[in-house]
Structure formats: structure tokens, C-alpha cells
Write a protein that binds this DNA or RNA. Sequence first.
DNA 1: ATTAATAATTAATAATATTAACTATTGTAT
DNA 2: ATACAATAGTTAATATTATTAATTATTAAT
Lengths: 159, 159
Amino acid sequence: MIDKTLDTSILLGLYETAMLLIKQNVEFVSKQGLTNQQWVILIHLAKDPNLPFLIREKHTMPLMASELADSLGVTRANITNLLTILMDKGLIKQIEDKEDRRKKRLVLTPKGDKLIKLMQPDRKKSNAQMLSGLSKKEKELFLIYIQKCTENLQTQKFS
Amino acid sequence: MIDKTLDTSILLGLYETAMLLIKQNVEFVSKQGLTNQQWVILIHLAKDPNLPFLIREKHTMPLMASELADSLGVTRANITNLLTILMDKGLIKQIEDKEDRRKKRLVLTPKGDKLIKLMQPDRKKSNAQMLSGLSKKEKELFLIYIQKCTENLQTQKFS
DNA sequence: ATTAATAATTAATAATATTAACTATTGTAT
DNA sequence: ATACAATAGTTAATATTATTAATTATTAAT
């Protein structure tokens, strides 16, 4: 018999919430012909200041594929596939790095930029709906708890 | 330019935390030759009282495949595949429902039960580590916020 | 008695991601 | 200066995970 604990209830709760959240997002972005992963790449290139990866690390130069792989937690090969699709759609383009010719910097095209801007209002509405019923103070605490978890999960790797 | 908001920071934070959490769990359960989904099914059959699905709905009878599909948010066909693997491994078994012969109830075998019990100590340790640095009071608030999100995400479907 | 609904399964396929091998370029250590 | 390692990206083959559509069996509803 497994006992009921706060820790495990939180973990399984987080898991379920994230699954629902992804499902909803898949629905949202598929209206624009995007997959969830493609969308996440686009908001990275749009420098969304809410992205944990961009909060933790300052990036003055445009991102490259390997940095996206880091942030999304997938392989570079996978990122290559996703970027090819986004380039075929004309939403992003690669720029060669003059200083290091191995690197390719990634930026939104005007079309990609326009698409992200177009989706913003509905996106914000849907995000607000997910958190409705929580006060500003509660949301601030919520964010702190989430960030604490991420921190713990990332340092755990080295134990 | 996308603006920084509490709502979106929380949403993207949740997303990242869940991805890290799943990665860690995949590592944990793969040591026992399980995938993440297989593991989630096993703790359902072990009646883990921390599972949101089991908190929301009382189940006196053993679960059936369609209920698992509901809880995991996947198709019944997918569940069938997962159950076949778990039965081949001898971790679960099907029991025919006498009252309704369409239904098949799912239970752990002694081997499956033993495996779950064996994994519990490490599981609890890892869950505690994810939440280290948070007080009991903070954890209680955290759980309430998570449950509020799930609620909001589930009612949003009908808008 | 017929039709609809529910439960589970099967087969084919879609999607998503990984591994391993390869090219090109840059960094490092003799 | 040369050799070796490391980084960045790509490609091809494959693994995985999940879905859709069709099928069987059983039960519910009209």
C-alpha cells in the first residue's frame, strides 16, 4: 500500500497539469499548422522573456541549434529536423556566424515574427484562464515554487 | 516584442519543470526495464492515493483499460499496447468482469506488486529531493495552486 | 427486435525522437 | 607546426510512441 504524501501528490499533480497544458497548447498551435515543439522554438527566437532558459542565461547573439537543443532537452539531430520544417514554412532563417564558421544563428523571418505577434492575444488569454482564481500574490509564490523545483531537478543530476 | 508576464512565466516554468521531471523519471524507471507510461499504469493499479485521477474519483472496483486511457489522456488502443507489454512481463493481469462481460479489470500480479514496493524508497527520496528547500506550509500552497490549474484546464474544454 | 453505445482489440500508419556516422571548423597541447 | 580533441551541424536508419479506422463482443435503449 502506497502512502499519501505531500511530495508525491505535488509531483503527480505537476505531471498531470503539464500533460493537460501541452494538450491544450497542441490544439492552439495546430490551428496555425504548428506542432508544440515548433512553437517552442519560435518563441525562443522571438526572445520571449518568460522562457526559463532565457531568464537563466543572457543571450545577446541570436541562438543556435545546439542552444535550442539544450533548452528543449532534446538532441541536436532532432532540432535540425524541426528547423528544416520551420525554414520550409518560411518562418525562420539561418545566418552564418562570421567569427566562427561552424555556427549558424537562427532568427525569425518577417513572416515568422508576424505569426507570433498574431498568436499573442489568444495565447495570453489562455494562459490567464489557466491561472484564474489565483491572486497576484499567489501567482508570485507559485512561480517561486516552480523555479525551486527546476533548480532542484537540475542539481540532482550530479548526485 | 513579447512582454514579460507572471502568467506566461508560470506556464513556461511548469512546462520546463515537467519535462525535467519526466526525464528524471524515465531514468529511474528504465533501471527496472519500464517506460514512463508503463510505470504510470502500474502505480494506478497499485492504487497510489497521490494520483489526481484517484483523488477525484473513488474506485472500488479494479480499473479497466478505458479508465486508464482517461486518466493518462491517451487512446484506448495505446493503452492496449502498454497493457500487453506489462502482461508479457508478468507484472499485471486481466480479470473478467462477471457483471459486464465487455469489461476486463486490471490488477497487479504478486511480481508487479513486489516491484512497486521495491521502487518506493528511491521514488520517495527523489520526490523529496525535487521539493527540498520548501516548507510543509509552502508545499501545501503549491499543491493547491497546481490543483487549481488542473481544474481550470479541465473546465476550459467547454468554452 | 433493432439500433446505438460501450469495451477492447488489431493492423496500418503517423509523429517524434534517437543513435551513429560523417563533414567542417576551431581550440589545445605538445 | 602538427596532431588530436572538441564543437556545430547534418544525414540516414531506426526506435518509440501514439493515433486512426475497422472489427468483434456485449450491453443498453427505444
